[in-house]
């Protein structure tokens, strides 16, 4: 099972939009996929018309495979399941601190469902905590949505610093441009400059589109509602790039 995380220290940059649509694209192209909504806000869960799970308390997520498995729900789409968010995920951090080997806890949980899915996609809340450390440790590839603005750029750098500090290899961290407005000169210039400075930016960038904005109304991935739209095409292309990275990440399947 290959593990992909959408992560950023900054809120509202397109992590959830990315996780939801990439999970959908991976389930189409790369086999059975599980989307784990680790954000207690439950935005991913909402997009799949699900309710936060009642049964699965944070502690169980980390200690009890049976409970973890029984909390998984089938989405409306073939090959795509979701682990819905749970309000108690707010306490994940406190809980993690209380457990032994706190940094690798999430990684161990994923080991428990290894073999059930080809891909796991993690949607994460936007803060730097012990949970972030867990996510960064567990993932084979960490995707960081970056809106081409100076502020976003700064939080991306902060994330890299955080990795260095905690001895998490930054090789698996890949930024991509999110919510790009092509007619915005500032966006264009920032992208040009950042690509020149950091070659790790993925080729595909996700445009700012009404389709994605309206995901909250349709409560479906844009790949399902407008499979031929501009956003869907971009997410599919991004998924291809990501699959390449995951293949190369060396997780022996």
């Amino acid at each position: 099972m290959k593990r992909l995380a959408c992560y950023s220290i900054k809120g509202g940059v397109g992590k959830t939009a990315g996780a939801v649509n990439l999970a959908y694209a991976l389930s189409e192209a790369g086999g059975p996929t599980l989307l784990l909504d680790l954000d207690p806000q439950g935005a991913s869960t909402f997009y799949f018309r699900m309710r936060p799970s009642r049964g699965l308390k944070a502690k169980k997520l980390l200690t009890d495979t049976e409970r973890l498995l029984s909390a998984i729900r089938g989405s409306d789409y073939e090959n795509l399941d979701v682990l819905p968010a749970n309000l108690s995920f707010r306490n994940l951090d406190v809980l993690l601190k209380s457990l032994k080997g706190s940094r690798r806890r999430l990684s161990h949980s994923l080991d428990l469902i290894d073999g059930e899915y080809e891909n796991a996609v993690l949607d994460c809340p936007p803060n730097i905590t012990l949970l972030s450390e867990n996510v960064l440790t567990a993932a084979d590839v960490v995707l960081v949505p970056v809106i081409p603005t100076t502020l976003s750029e700064r939080t991306y750098r902060k994330l890299l610093d955080f990795c260095h500090e905690h001895r998490i290899p930054t090789a698996k961290v890949y930024p991509f441009f999110s919510m790009v407005q092509t007619n915005n000169r500032m966006h264009r210039e920032t992208m040009e400059r950042l690509r020149a400075e950091d070659p790790k930016f993925l080729n595909t960038s996700i445009p700012f589109t009404v389709e994605v904005e309206r995901m909250g109304i349709h409560r479906e991935p844009v790949l399902a509602t407008q499979p031929r739209g501009r956003a869907a095409r971009a997410y599919r292309e991004l998924a291809v790039e990501v699959l390449w990275l995951l293949e190369g990440s060396g997780r022996g399947d």
Binding site: M1, G31, P32, D81, E116
Partner: peptide
Amino acid sequence: MTPSKTTAAGSRRPA
């Protein structure tokens, strides 16, 4: 991973 172990929606045998 062998496909037979897969239990994701669609390949698992649901009730």
